[in-house]
């Protein structure tokens, strides 16, 4: 099983490289890796009572009597009928304004948000580059590295193997023995990125990981992302920084209010997006 995965990632590596070289020659596109079929995502948000709805008990009772829903629970229709096919070797940038459903789409592709309607079909397990939620700020960097690696599904042997690399890449040195609450925001971001990027993936989803850290770290992390792109079959990248998209991607999807507004070559889509 392990050997098979290795072999597959080896293939993915080679095909990924090949795809990179033919980035502008789309007719050589390979096997589909992600199919998104008329996807709708609705999720619930709690505790979003607006100012004029006072949250007292009498109002709550009235709402129950009038058979209205709880005001604290809002439904957000974040993705409204999105369909596309992604192929092996694609590096797809997803752009759009805040709240256009980019991150939700990414989470749905990763299989982390259940579709309300429609479906996402994938080859292998897409993984989101994000481990922040598993970390605990009261614990030392050292413990968080171990915790984060396990949360991503590594084995103890893999954790031991990657530990030094993570510390080194994050550049936090002796701070690794202090609780993360003592870190500067840049240091925290560096450690989180170092942990998250320590694992190899088939389909990789990156959500705004590049906007952190100083110039030196930015260079290092862009290098790391390029590496990961070569190893992964397909990469999705959400970013507000259009330069990053232009440099990294061979296809761009423009999301607007939960729908796809445009999908195609970076040049065309980015030009239309900037004009907008």
């Amino acid at each position: 099983m392990a050997e098979l995965t290795k072999e597959r990632s080896q293939v993915a590596l080679e095909e990924g490289k090949a795809a990179q070289e033919v980035v502008r020659a789309p007719e050589k596109r390979g096997k589909p890796t992600v199919v998104v079929d008329n996807l709708h995502i609705v999720y619930r948000v709690y505790g979003a009572a607006s100012v004029h709805e006072k949250g007292n008990a009498a109002n709550a009772l009235m709402r129950i009597l009038r058979r209205q829903g709880r005001p604290q629970m809002k439904e957000v229709h974040a993705v409204k009928g999105v369909s596309f096919v992604a192929y092996h070797g694609d590096a797809i940038g997803i752009i759009g304004r805040n709240g256009s459903g980019k991150s939700t789409l990414l989470r749905a592709i990763a299989g982390l948000l259940p579709p309300t309607k429609g479906a996402v079909y994938t080859d292998g397990q897409p993984s989101l580059l994000g481990v922040n939620a598993a970390l605990m700020k009261d614990l030392t960097g050292e413990r968080n590295i171990v915790l984060g690696c396990y949360a991503m599904g590594m084995t103890p042997a893999q954790v031991r193997e990657k530990y030094d690399e993570i510390v080194e890449f994050s550049g936090i040195d002796e701070f690794v023995n202090l609780p993360m609450s003592a870190y500067s925001s840049g240091m925290g971001a560096r450690l989180r990125f170092a942990i998250a990027s320590a694992k190899t993936h088939d389909v990789l989803l990156i959500d705004e990981a590049l906007a952190t850290g100083d110039r030196e770290f930015k260079r290092k992390s862009q290098e790391r992302i390029r590496q990961m792109r070569e190893e992964a079959g397909t990469v999705f990248l959400v970013a507000h920084n259009l330069d990053v998209i232009e440099e990294t991607c061979n296809r761009v999807i423009w999301m607007h209010k939960g729908k796809i507004k445009m999908d195609g070559d970076p040049d065309k889509v980015l030009a239309a997006y900037t004009k907008n």
Partner: peptide
């Protein structure tokens, strides 16, 4: 349709995306 123009493996005419995904051995991610 634009994605379809790319050549290679694309959904055939009248083929639903679900059937296309199945033809290529893709599974529902959730």
């Amino acid at each position: 349709a634009q994605a379809g123009d790319r050549g290679g493996a694309t959904p055939m005419k009248g083929e639903s995306l679900a059937a296309f995904a199945e033809r290529h051995g893709l599974r529902r991610s959730i």
